[in-house]
Amino acid sequence: MSAPSASVSAPAPSPSASGTPSSAALEPAVPFIEIEGLRTEQFIPAAKEALSSLIAEQAQGKLIRPVFNWAGRNSLFPLHWGLACCAIEFASAFGARFDAERFGIVPRSSPRQCDLLIVNGTVTWKVAHKLITLYEQMPEPKWVIAMGNCATGGGPFRTAYSVVPGVDKLVPVDIYIAGCPPRPEALLDGILKLEELIRERGE
């Protein structure tokens, strides 16, 4: 039985890292702590070790990013903002049956505390600049999920005179969830997909 332990090893080559994979293997750009898949009793010593090495490495600015990445993607805080129909399914996802909080997703009411903007509904031109303001008020790193067909491309209202045909005209979107409205399972799947995306990007 080989228990995984915290160890400093070469990172997995990621497309966002500078250089080719071969050069990254030669010179590990960022030390990487394998804290994925640790059991609870193994986690505390591993975290201690990671923190002690973190303090040493942080002076050189090497280690902080993967730790933040791991912590951030496992505790995404979406903005508590209901736009339209999808907001009801968004609320259902936090209800008793679907219980999104088991994934560490807790809606917050202030954009300053959020790192995820779930656009759950039709965006009109009247609310467009308010949406951009909210997005800009969120601290980096931040992500956007376009939930439902309206946020993705205008949905059944795309021809209307007051509707933005897709929220990606206003803010950069990371995950699109299809459906009118998407079921709560689809929303949870989208958030899990976003977690994978954050891991891949390594931001």
């Binding site: 491309g153 795309r158 021809t159 209307a160 005179y161 045909p165």
Partner: peptide, 20 residues
């Protein structure tokens, strides 16, 4: 319902809708 300064009256028959 529309923002201040909106010049059109959308429910007139002469106001046409377009695909985006």
């Amino acid at each position: 319902l529309m923002p201040d300064g909106y010049e059109f009256h959308p429910l007139l028959r002469s106001f046409k809708l377009h695909e985006p």
